[in-house]
Computed example of a mutant assay.
Amino acid sequence: MRDLGVGFGYLMKGQRWVAQHGKQYGVSLLPGLITLVLYAGALVALALWGSDAVGWATPFADDWASPWRGYFRGFLTVLLFGLALLLSVLTFTAVTLLIGQPFYESLSEKVDIAESGHAPESGLPLWRELWISARDSLRVVVRALLWGVLLFGLGFIPVVGQTVVPVIGFCVTGFFLVEELTAVALQRRGVELRERLALLRSRKQLAWGFGTPLAVVFLVPFVAVFLMPGAVAGATLMARDLLGENGSEDDGASAGAGQDSDAATRRMPLT
């Protein structure tokens, strides 16, 4: 249970860090604002023309008697918009990180330098880093969507679907948010997706403590824009913890686990 508080503490430390570095914070807001405008435009377009798209996709209902045709297409329109909102929540972080890769890399490096005096580098060209980030983000989004479909189906179970399932949903979303955010720092250290997921699974409560409250507030994309820089800074601090780089801030057990992970990381090629 201690790790829940530690994870939430990293989230708060990240927000404090960017608050103390105003210039870095201002620059890091740009990717989130760009993504917000793109998503808002797409959702507005869907709200305006979603019913037309549903009508075009369901020609077999043209001859249905009223009001069943309207009910059917209205339900599909609402479902389409709801799925679009879910997809926007699941992908907002990934798309923002992809658009803002250079900005967030710079922010993460500055956090590393502030903590230890140096920042690990991948040694890869920018285009290669962008390709790896896009590839890994797509893999994570696919995993998140599979979980989303499963939880959506479980949501129809009486009582459990309206109580337990939403809580699980926030925990799952938070876990994948943490993976996306820590990837900024861990990718520079040559830690690949499979190893990143293994690190987070080994300390699920740490990931939940950081990611679950973030998943709740990220339901409002406008809020997500302003919290994203601090989330990247806090995730960098968490990545250092996962790899045992925080020294005295870790307890013995955490440091031992991190050292093992760090040793495994050093043996991995930067691909």
Rank of each mutant, 00 (worst) to 15 (best):
L199P: 00
A185V: 10
R203D: 12
R196F: 03
V172M: 07
C171R: 10
G169A: 07
V184H: 10
F175G: 03
G209I: 07
R196Y: 07
T173A: 15
Q187F: 10
V172Y: 07
I168K: 07
T173P: 01
L206A: 02
C171F: 13
E192S: 06
L206D: 07
L181C: 04
C171Q: 09
V184A: 06
G209C: 04
E179R: 00
Q187L: 15
T173K: 08
R194C: 02
V172T: 06
L200T: 10
L197E: 09
S202C: 08
C171Y: 09
S202P: 15
I168M: 14
S202M: 08
W208N: 09
F176K: 04
W208Y: 15
C171V: 14
L186W: 01
A198G: 09
L181T: 01
A183T: 04
Q205L: 14
R203Y: 12
Q205F: 13
V172E: 01
G190D: 08
V184T: 13
E179G: 11
V167D: 00
G169L: 08
I168E: 11
V172R: 08
F175E: 02
R194V: 11
R194E: 12
L177H: 12
G211K: 09
E179F: 07
L197T: 14
A207F: 02
V191P: 04
V191Q: 03
G174A: 10
A207I: 13
G211T: 03
K204I: 12
R188A: 13
I168V: 13
W208V: 13
G190C: 04
L193G: 07
R201N: 14
K204M: 13
V191G: 01
A207H: 01
E180L: 15
L186S: 03
L193R: 10
T173I: 06
R189H: 08
W208A: 07
C171G: 09
R189I: 00
E195A: 15
R188N: 10
E179I: 10
L186K: 06
L199A: 03
L200D: 01
V191T: 02
C171D: 01
R203H: 11
T173E: 11
R188I: 06
L200K: 05
A185H: 09
K204E: 12
V167Q: 05
I168W: 14
W208R: 08
A185E: 08
L197C: 09
G190V: 05
G169R: 05
G211N: 04
K204L: 15
F170Q: 08
A185R: 04
L193P: 03
L200C: 05
V167M: 04
C171A: 14
L193A: 06
A185T: 09
G211S: 05
F210S: 01
V178R: 05
C171T: 03
R196I: 07
L177K: 11
A207Q: 02
L206E: 07
F175W: 12
A185S: 15
V191L: 09
G174Y: 06
L181P: 00
V178T: 15
R196C: 06
L200E: 13
L199I: 02
G209Q: 05
G174N: 01
V172L: 04
G190N: 08
V172K: 09
A183W: 07
R201P: 00
L186A: 02
E179P: 00
A183E: 13
L199Q: 10
